[in-house]
C-alpha cells in the first residue's frame, strides 16, 4: 500500500505541473489583456504594469518566473484585485465554499443513499416509480432554475428564508439544498441500480438462507458492496462541491471560490485562474486517492498494487 501511495503522489506532482503549465500558457495565449479597461491605458503604463506583474519579456521567461514563484508557494498578486494576493483570495474564499460544500456533500449522500435504497426495496411499485420520477426531475432541473424558484417561493413569497448572503443559519438552507438536490438524485439512481444488482447475487441468497434479519442483510452486506459505484462517484462530487459552484454562489451571493472560477477567466486574471485550477486539481486528485484507499476497506477483494 505504501509504494502505491508513493507512486500516486509522484503522479500527482507531475499532473499538477502539467496543469499549472497548461493553464498559464493558455491564459497567456488567449486574446485579451489582463490590464485592458474601458478607458485606454497609455502604452508606457501598460508596459509598467506588465513588468510589475512579471508579464513582460518572452512567454518562456514569464512562464519560468511564474513556475518558480508557484514552487515557492507564492501564487502572486491578482491582476484584477490589486490589493490581494491569490493566496489571500483563496484563504478567504475557499473555506466558505468548503464549509457549504461539505454540508451539501453529506446531505447529498444521506438523501441519495436512503432514497436509492428505498426505491430498490420497492422495485417496480409506486414508491419506486414516484421516487425515480422525482430523481429524474432533480437531475434535469439545473440549479440556475432551482435557485431562483426557491428564492421566489421561500424567500420572497413566504419570507421564511434569506434571499442571499452568508453567515446566518437561514442563509445556509437554500444554497445547500440547491447544491445537493441535483446530486442527491444522481446518487439515488446510482444506489438503486447497484443495490438491485447486488440483491440478486449468491452471497445475499446465502445470507437469507442463514436466516439473517432482512435489515441486517441490506445494511451490513448488500449496501456495503452496492456503495462502491457511489464511492467512485463521491470523489469528483466532493471536489466539485468543496470548491464552490459558480451558479449557486453567485445567485445566493456567497463569498466562496465558485464565481472566481469563471470571472477570473473573463478578466484574464491569470494568477487567480492558476491558483484556483491548482487548488481544484489538488483537491480532486487527493480525493481520488482517498477513494481508492476507501475501496479496499469496503471490498476486501480489491488489492492495491
Amino acid at each position: 500500500m505504501i509504494p502505491f501511495i508513493f507512486r500516486r503522489l509522484i503522479l500527482m506532482l507531475l499532473t499538477l505541473f502539467t496543469v499549472v503549465s497548461l493553464t498559464f500558457l493558455l491564459m497567456r495565449l488567449a486574446p485579451g489583456n489582463p490590464f485592458s479597461a474601458d478607458r485606454k491605458i497609455p502604452p508606457s503604463i501598460l508596459q509598467e504594469l506588465e513588468s510589475k506583474y512579471g508579464l513582460s519579456g518572452t512567454i518562456g521567461e514569464q512562464y519560468l518566473s511564474y513556475l518558480k514563484d508557484v514552487i515557492r508557494g507564492d501564487l502572486r498578486i491578482s491582476t484584477k484585485y490589486r490589493d490581494w494576493s491569490v493566496n489571500e483570495i483563496l484563504a478567504q474564499t475557499l473555506p466558505v465554499s468548503m464549509a457549504l460544500g461539505s454540508v451539501a456533500f453529506c446531505l447529498t449522500l444521506l438523501f441519495g443513499i436512503i432514497l436509492g435504497s428505498f426505491a430498490a426495496l420497492y422495485q417496480g411499485q409506486w414508491q419506486d416509480r414516484s421516487l425515480m420520477l422525482v430523481a429524474l426531475l432533480g437531475i434535469s432541473i439545473p440549479s440556475y432554475i432551482l435557485a431562483p424558484l426557491f428564492i421566489l417561493f421561500f424567500g420572497l413569497h413566504l419570507g421564511w428564508l434569506s434571499v442571499a448572503g452568508f453567515g446566518n443559519a437561514d442563509q445556509w438552507i437554500l444554497p445547500v439544498l440547491c447544491l445537493s438536490l441535483p446530486f442527491s438524485a444522481s446518487v439515488a439512481r446510482l444506489v438503486r441500480t447497484s443495490l438491485l444488482e447486488v440483491l440478486t447475487q449468491d452471497f445475499i441468497r446465502t445470507a437469507r438462507a442463514k436466516g439473517l434479519d432482512e435489515s441486517k442483510i441490506i445494511i451490513r452486506h448488500a449496501l456495503r458492496v452496492a456503495l462502491l459505484p457511489v464511492v467512485s462517484y463521491a470523489g469528483p462530487l466532493a471536489a466539485n462541491l468543496l470548491t464552490g459552484s459558480m451558479v449557486v454562489e453567485q445567485i445566493f451571493k456567497i463569498p466562496g471560490m465558485g464565481p472566481f472560477f469563471i470571472n477570473s477567466v473573463l478578466n484574464r486574471d491569470l494568477f487567480v485562474v492558476g491558483g484556483i485550477v491548482l487548488v481544484f486539481s489538488l483537491i480532486l486528485m487527493s480525493l481520488n486517492l482517498f477513494v481508492d484507499l476507501l475501496y479496499t476497506l469496503l471490498d476486501r477483494r480489491i488489492k492495491l498494487s
Binding site: P148, G155, L156, V163
Partner: peptide, 9 residues
C-alpha cells in the same frame, strides 16, 4: 437579480 432580491426583501 440578487441585488434587487436583497432590496426587495
Amino acid at each position: 437579480t440578487t441585488a434587487f432580491n436583497l432590496f426587495y426583501s
